[in-house]
Amino acid sequence: MPIPSQPIGIFDSGYGGLTVLREIVQKLPQYDYIYLGDNARTPYGTRSFETVYHYTLECVQHLFDRGCRLVVLACNTASAKALRNIQQLDLPIQHPGLDGPDRRVLGVIRPTTEVIGNYSQSGNVGVLATRGTVTSESYLVEIEKFFPELNVFQEACPMWVPLVENGEYDSPGADYFVKQHIDRLLKQSPDIDTILLACTHYPLLLNKIRQYAPQGATILSQGGIVADSLADYLIRHPELEAQCSKHRQRTFLTTDSTEDFDRQATVFYGESVHSEHLAL
């Protein structure tokens, strides 16, 4: 009788998490992965805490139902608005389907905040994110835990995700919005020398961000950081790592059009994908 697959689940509200999955697969290619993009209900960044929590929990539940023992929320908004409740409320009380100590849900905020201070010489860092992530103040709280000496400045960039999702990330029209928010961030402190892209969509705007950021500034994308953190987590939790299946299988799910997802996913993931539709 074949052993059931137990992939590592990667969740995002849309396409951005594919930039994280790409880095994870490069770092840890031996595992099976299942990616779930909730494209039908994106964007999450403008939605309430309760709505994001409800949507995220529903998607995590589905990934658990598909055999995942470990799920990574490759979405800053979900990590900011839903992760703590899922970790502290749903998993411990053995909510139906979330019923085992061997089931874990991780996010992208903590791995980033654990290392961000290592990149700054001036002690001034900027965070570019969705309005939902900025409003949550999750980065302010988490960075304070690891690097209390840092000065952290945030800027919400509500137009950036739509630009990326509509394929306008490399267009002349994107320059206006990228420059606008970089200028607003630097107006808070001209001494910022490290800028965190706290949304997994933003790496597609990297060329334009570098163009308008201060010369020599460090621009941090989260994919590589999260991949390194996941590798370390699996080493530190061998009992969980042993449950993760290792057949190099990749499965992609979307709650919206598979044709649209497959076309857009190629840009984010760097390879062609063939997705399945998921009705929630």
Rank of each mutant, 00 (worst) to 15 (best):
L140C: 06
R104S: 11
R248A: 15
K208T: 03
E168P: 02
G107W: 03
L89K: 11
L280A: 01
Y269A: 11
G123P: 02
G117W: 01
R263L: 14
P96M: 14
F177L: 09
R210P: 01
E50F: 08
D183V: 04
S272G: 09
I3H: 10
F268V: 03
P190F: 12
C68T: 04
V105A: 04
D170L: 11
L36C: 04
E144P: 00
D102S: 08
L57W: 01
I209P: 03
E23V: 08
P2I: 15
I109F: 14
L98Y: 10
G107H: 08
G45P: 05
R250M: 09
L63I: 10
C244R: 02
P162G: 09
N118M: 08
Y15S: 02
H62T: 03
D170G: 09
E155L: 02
S122I: 08
K145F: 05
F177M: 11
G123D: 12
R248N: 13
M159Y: 00
N85D: 09
L278F: 13
I10N: 03
V178H: 01
L89Q: 14
Q264D: 02
G67L: 13
V71Y: 03
A213P: 03
Y139C: 13
L240C: 05
S13H: 09
G132V: 04
R110C: 00
G224H: 12
K145A: 15
R66L: 11
I93Q: 07
E50V: 08
L230I: 15
L240Y: 07
G9C: 14
R110K: 13
Q188T: 09
H237Y: 15
L98K: 01
F49L: 07
H181Q: 07
L185M: 00
T130D: 02
P203G: 12
S272E: 14
T251G: 15
Q26V: 00
R41H: 11
Y169L: 12
